[in-house]
Structure formats: C-alpha cells, structure tokens
Design a binder for these strands. Structure first.
Lengths: 224, 224
DNA sequence: ACCTGAACACCGTTCAAGT
DNA sequence: ACCTGAACACCGTTCAAGT
C-alpha cells in the first residue's frame, strides 16, 4: 500500500531549474489535455517537455504529485475568479450573485474540458487533504461572507456546510453536462441556478419523523 | 489511444465455467474493497479467485471490463432498491418519497463504502455509454412516473432532465459526505432532502436577462 | 545544483501448450 | 470448451555517472 507523498520534492534553486519545473508542468497539462488520463505517462511528459524522466523525479516524488501540482494551480485560478465575480456582483440581487458564480464554474470546466475533467477526477482519488483545503477554504469563506450579508438570505443561516453544498451541487451538475456530447450551456445555467436558489431559499427541514429501517446503519467495510 | 471494449468477451458455456466467472467477479469486488483502486490488479484478482490470470482474459477483454461488470451489477441492485422504495412510499407526501430515495442512495453508498467509491470513480472515467443508460433509464423512468403523478408537483413539469438532475445532486452530496472521516448520516439526509425539495419546488427560472460576458463560450479544447 | 538515460520492478495482456 | 503460466510490452521509479 503506497502512502504516496504529494508535495513537491524540493524547490528549484537556480533560474534554469525553475524553467525546467515550469516546462515540466506545462508539458504535463498538455499531455493531459491531449491524451486524457490514459496515455498520461511520465515518459511522454518528459518527451514533450524535452527533458529526461529523471528530471521530473528531482522535483516531484511521483506521478501523482505532478497531477497534484496542476490541481493546485487550477484551484488557485478558480479562487481568483470567484473573488472577482463576487466583487462584480456586490450589492446585486441574489440570482445575479449566483449566476456570476455559476458562470465562473462553467468557464472553469469548459475552458479546457479534457484537462478540467481529468483534474477533477484525480482530485477525488488522491489524498490531497490539506493541500486542497487551503484554497478551498479561501473560496468558501469568500462565498459565505457574500451570502451572510445578503438581504434575501436574511432569515436563513448560512453555515460553512451550506456553502460547500452549493459548490458540490453546482460542480456535479456542470460535470454531468460536460460528459454530454453536445452540452447546452444556456440550459445548464438555468438548471444550476434553480438548484442553488432552491437549496438556499428552501427553509432548512424541520426534523422529519422517520420510521427506523434497516438503512439506519453506520458506515462499515463489509465484504460484498 | 486504446478504444477499449468493455463488454464480456464471451459467455461461459459450461457450468464450471460459470462458477469461474462468478468467482472472478467476487474476487474482483473483494480486492477492490480491500485495496481500493490502487492495488487492484489482475494478478491479485487471479490469486484471490484461485485461477490463472489467463482465465480472466477468457471472459473479460481487459481490466476495465471487469470493473464495468461490477458497475453493472451495482446499478441493477440500485434500480431494484429504488423501485421497491417508490412502491413503499406510494401515495405519501413528497418529502416521504424523497426521503425514501435518499435512504436508498445512502445505503447504496455506505453499505460498502470503499467498493462503492471505487465503482463510482470508474463509472465516470470509463466510456460506459450504452451499458449504463439501460439501467439508468429504468431508474429515471420509475422516478419520473412517481414525480409526474404526485399532487405536490402538479404545477411543475417534471422532465427527464429534472429527474436526472435530482440523482446527480443527491449523489454528489452523498459522495462528498462519504469522503469525510466521520460522516454524519442524519445531517446528510436533511441536506439532501432540502436540496431535492428546493430544486423540485423552486419554479423553473424565468429567463434571466444576462449581460454577455467573455464566459459566453462554447466548449473547446484549447491548450492551457 | 542540476541533468541524463540505462536498469529494475511491477503489472496488463497474450499465446502456446495442456486437460 | 476451458484452463494454465511463462513470456512480452509498457511504464513508474531509481541511481550511478556526468556537467
């Protein structure tokens, strides 16, 4: 069971080394875009980058760390876009705010569809834990602030979970549309907006009396 | 670029061969549960099943087809559970119907968490196309019928897309909770119900006047 | 400090040989 | 018809040798 480290092995100390690292990451993004996850191998990345495979392993402990670095960059750029969008829609109606965020997420996903899909996929699989949460907290905090002070949500308490759920929901709808052969972005925007508005404006459910059934289980690791 | 076939190579003709196939699939599920996707390899599956690697390739064209078969079985069992749930909640309030479906989905995900997560993951990655849609249509149709005739949704038109969106949303929330270290199933139920009720009861958005921005793009395959 | 590329290990897949 | 397992190919990772 390989508990793989995902952090960069070391930082380049010389200028030409920094170029090497940058070249490697660009090549990795390129290969991932062109060939998707199958066909993404270190040999090809090295070839496209014009370096030896060994050079990759001087800065990244393994292939997963290479992908993790790309995910980190994508997250950063998403966080920037979210903050810009919230700034633009400041003081506007809730549907405007939400539409802005949805547009950002759609752009993020469809701007480079193959790459984004591959990164999303690996994001779930890799134990990114803390690496991810830094930037994601930044996003969550910004959105939560915007929600909290919004008049239309005055009566609803907006928790961190609520904010994260909004992201989860929007992301799922967008990714689902992305796998379609002919995505309809206009329709997608409406559906995502409806889902988010619905979730946010729906009063949190009063505890629903529920008969206990055999689905009242705690998570376990049974064999099939 | 390997356009991999995912359908079983052939059906076993003798009884002992059927046993072999069953044994292989059970071993595959076992390995996947124990070791997750890393560490899931054909050699180990063969070893656990007590057969030679060659035997696997007599019935499955490749490793992905093995996983695809497991996905198919999981989908079938989910479809059964959905239909049973809809039958139980027939004529009840909408929140009851939705809660029943949510419980089914939660049971499906948490009953064998590692296996379910691995299968979900591969479900997105593999080009399952038609293999999936058969069972998924069965589920979607059943749910859509239940929604369409439900009094509380009388004024809302329930399209196929609406139904699928509900699944997408519920699944995303459940999977997200499944990656947590200490999942809170009771809270998850409430959040999922709120999301589904919100989406279904929220009147479909009137076309929102939107300024055109540079995010009005069509999907493309640009380089980063 | 950085880079190279041959060498090794692991694993997916095949195929000649068996029953 | 079914099963075996050695052999091959591909790819992740390392390391001794270079600059």
């Amino acid at each position: 069971m390989p508990k793989q480290p995902l952090l960069p092995r070391k930082k380049p100390r010389q200028a030409r080394a920094a170029v090497t690292v940058e070249t490697i990451l660009e090549a990795a993004a390129r290969v991932l875009s062109d060939k998707s996850l199958d066909g993404f191998n270190t040999n090809r990345v090295a070839e496209v980058a014009g370096v030896s495979v060994g050079s990759i392993y001087q800065y990244f402990p393994n292939k997963a760390a290479l992908v993790a670095a790309l995910i980190g960059r994508a997250q950063d750029s998403l966080a920037d876009a979210v903050e810009r969008s919230l700034q633009r829609s400041q003081g506007q109606r809730l549907d405007r705010v939400l539409s802005g965020l949805i547009d950002v997420a759609i752009e993020h996903q469809f701007g480079n569809a193959v790459l984004a899909a591959a990164l999303d996929h690996e994001e779930q699989r890799l134990p990114l834990g803390d690496m991810l949460s830094a930037t994601q907290h930044r996003i969550a905090k910004a959105v939560q602030r915007a929600f909290e002070k919004h008049p239309e949500l005055g009566n609803t308490t907006v928790t961190a979970t609520t904010t994260i759920d909004c992201f989860t929901i929007a992301k799922a709808l967008i990714e689902s549309e992305a796998t379609r052969e002919k995505p309809d972005l206009a329709a997608l925007r409406k559906r995502a907006l409806r889902a988010l508005q619905g979730y946010l404006l729906q009063p949190a459910t009063k505890t629903l009396p529920r008969k206990r059934t055999r689905t009242d289980i705690q998570p376990s690791q049974d064999s099939p």
